[in-house]
């Protein structure tokens, strides 16, 4: 008995965002289907993976993670090169030291580090601030200026500081991460506000504030599914690719951090922690994530292998 295959006729698609500069530019988004349903639409760009680099040595990362970056953790440039060696599509430089509780590094110094990292690697750069909205606006403004024309992805822009960051992106030709706390309406509102400043839709990437597996992953999961459906049904204010800044969430969970000895009933840490990161990412890939920021190189490898599989077209 022949089954009439059910295909949705989507009227629209996710905007395609280009990051970095030729010949090393990376493209994300552009999907005209729900994730991996190749039988009803296009998914021309693979979901991309960035590895995280800090501008100061992390003190609370589990040993399992620091081991992978032994010797480079106090040198962002060397660290970034290591990430590229591991095969990252992009490097995500997080300017943790700018936080007033850390080193309160000046915007100028931050910009200098960002430039050094950008010059040292040939993959495009994501630059994140320290999470203090006011400071981030100042820091990212300087970074944008120092790396003018390099087409970075800058964030996080929030409802509080988006104006400065958007303006900096416009002037210096960068892209913005619009970040909102777990709410599709707030997400859409920020996109509207940014677009009303005339930054084009294909220069915006959505950060819905993802959680890790077991820590509210379902909220962002559903927001991302709704965002994708919005994009495909013609809502221009939701038609941007989504970034999942996951590593930081995963590596603070006890499931990833507890060693085999600490939690024998949960099995081997190496296996468990990697799976925690990869399964979180795979779930978000199903919900529509286009860009993933992970921490462990093994997670990168496994997630990439999974994506390769899911990207193989299926037709009926």
């Amino acid at each position: 008995m022949a089954v009439t295959i059910a295909k949705e006729r989507w009227t629209s698609k996710v905007a395609e965002v280009v990051l970095g500069t030729e010949p090393n530019a990376v493209k994300i988004g552009g999907e005209s289907t729900l994730p991996f349903l190749h039988f009803e639409g296009e998914m021309n760009n693979y979901p991309k993976v960035a590895l995280e680099v800090w501008d100061m040595e992390p003190t609370e990362w589990p040993e399992m993670l620091t081991r992978a970056y032994a010797g480079v953790l106090n040198d962002p440039v060397a660290w970034a090169k290591k990430c590229v060696e591991y095969g990252a599509d992009m490097v995500c430089l997080t300017l943790v030291s700018a936080h007033p509780d850390n080193k309160d590094t000046s915007p100028e110094e931050c910009a200098r580090v960002a430039k050094a990292v950008a010059d040292a690697v040939n993959v495009p750069l994501i630059v994140l601030g320290c999470g203090v909205e006011e400071k981030d606006a100042q820091v990212l403004e300087k970074v944008a200026e120092a790396l003018s024309g390099r087409n970075l992805l800058l964030g996080l822009a929030t409802a509080e500081n988006y104006k400065t960051i958007t303006a900096a992106c416009m002037v210096h030709g960068h892209n913005i991460i619009a970040s909102t706390p777990l709410d599709i309406n707030l997400e859409k509102q920020l996109n509207i506000l940014i677009m009303e400043m005339n930054l084009a839709a294909d220069r915006i990437v959505i950060d819905p504030s993802v959680g890790a597996l077991g820590y509210g992953i379902e909220y962002a999961y559903s927001i991302m599914e709704r965002t994708r459906i919005g994009a495909l049904t013609g809502d221009k204010m939701l038609a941007m690719p989504v970034i999942c800044i996951l590593g930081q969430e995963v590596w603070k969970t006890k499931e990833a951090k507890n060693t085999t000895e600490e939690a024998p009933e949960w099995g081997n840490q190496e296996r468990r922690a990697i799976l925690w990161e990869v399964v979180s990412a795979a779930a978000f890939a199903q919900a529509g994530g286009s860009l993933f920021v992970l921490r462990h190189p093994e997670s990168l490898k496994q997630f990439r292998a999974h994506i390769e599989k899911m990207m193989r077209p299926v037709t009926y």
Binding site: L213, G214, I217, E218, Y221, S222, E255, G267, N268, R271
Partner: peptide, 19 residues
Amino acid sequence: DPADILPLITLRLNIYTDP
């Protein structure tokens, strides 16, 4: 292996919570 099953059980719990 519990290291394999724990993430799956957790994912199931998350996906099937009442939205």
